[in-house]
Simulated assay, not measured.
Amino acid sequence: MSRNKIFIPVLAIFCLLLMVVWLAGGFQNKLAPGNKSELPAYQGTRYTVQKSLIAMIEQVPASVVAKENTLVSSRLLAELKTLNVRAGDKVTAGQLIATLDDAELKAELQRVAAQQAANSAKLEQATKQLVRNKSLNEKGLIAINQVDEWQATVNELQAQDKALQEAYRSAEVALGYTQITAPISGKVVARLQEPGSMVSPGGAIISLFNPLQLQIEAPIRESQVKHIQLGSEIKVRIPALDISQTARVSEMVPIADSQARSFIIKLDMPLLQNVVPGMYALVKLVLGEQAVIQIPTNMISKYGQLAMVEVIESGQLHKRYLRLGEETGNKTIVISGLNEGDQLAVQR
């Protein structure tokens, strides 16, 4: 029994030592010391990395706006009687789009017309009486003061006639304001009132814009303004429609926004299908030139988010990871990872 107590621990220790020796490679054949065999030198096509000048382009967020847009408003305090258009409808300049209640204005026009008729009758009678009195005065039958009295009456009635004529014209103009027409040709954006509502002078009824004349409006930083002039041609892009076009700078607000430290510029753009005000746009500003490293895009191997090229060093190929910039055409800008003069292996 005492021998078993000694034998079992000794056996366990022995097995443990054998396992340690095995894990340490004690039972494997060791390689003889020597130099590692070198791979053959790269003999394929090489590409020499060089710097090239490219335009420094900054993309500025912008918006599409209508060059011609307006709010059609009432000039009177009256009830909106009819509204003949809805959002999306096309209208032409001068087209009747709404009417206001005109009952009171028509009554006012009739009242002024009646006053004109009464005043004209009095003026006619007073003029005849003035002629008779002048004749009697010349014969010495009446005093001159009677002639003066009728002359004053005629003058007063003539002044009233002129005032009533002006009142009639004003009433006609006011009555014309009940017929609301489109000031420009374009498309209705929204109805801002509905028939039956009371509108006040200056109260908007509908909004219009001209879809044939659109602009790009962009805020430009103070440091960028020196690169822009009126009439300059600048490339713009509408990302939603994947459209790129050249636009001309037509307006530059001469005062900077004191909070954003930016200037507003507007660019006239040609008519493009499906482009409407409010769409997001990008203005591409050329701010000069800079020297960068560009390599052909097909020489870059990508593994997920990693980009890599094979660089030739001492005749051997070595993998090198890159940080890439913008891809333009068939070349990609390398931000870091390569230096001018590096040799790259052209992939076959």
Score class of each variant (00 low, 15 high):
Asn298Asp: 13
Ala117Asp: 10
Val346Ile: 14
Thr181Lys: 14
Ser250Met: 11
Leu16Met: 13
Gly315Val: 03
Val147Ser: 08
Val64Leu: 07
Ala152Leu: 15
Ile295Ala: 04
Ala240Ile: 12
Ser250Ala: 14
Met279Asp: 01
Ile312Cys: 02
Glu58Arg: 11
Lys284Asp: 09
Gly203Val: 06
Phe209Ala: 00
Thr178Ile: 07
Val131Asn: 12
Ser200Asn: 14
Ala182Tyr: 02
Thr127Val: 10
Val85Ile: 13
Ala12Pro: 01
Val20Trp: 01
Met279Lys: 06
Ala12Glu: 00
Thr328Ile: 14
Leu164Met: 04
Met1Val: 13
Pro61Val: 05
Ser200Pro: 05
Ala159Val: 10
Glu326Gly: 02
Val173Trp: 05
Val283Glu: 05
Gly196Asp: 12
Gln59Phe: 05
Ala171Thr: 02
Thr153Cys: 05
Phe7Trp: 11
Ile300Leu: 09
Val253Trp: 04
Lys162Ser: 14
Leu306Lys: 13
Leu141Lys: 11
Thr153Phe: 02
Gln125Phe: 10
Val21Phe: 14
Leu338Met: 08
Thr82Asn: 13
Val283His: 03
Phe27Ser: 10
Leu157Arg: 14
Ala113Asn: 08
Ala103Arg: 12
Ala307Cys: 03
Gly140Asp: 01
Ile142Cys: 04
Ser2Leu: 11
Pro61Phe: 02
Ser232Pro: 05
Val188Arg: 07
Ser200Val: 14
Ile293His: 03
Leu164Trp: 06
Gln165Gly: 10
Pro277Cys: 08
Gly315Leu: 04
Tyr280Glu: 12
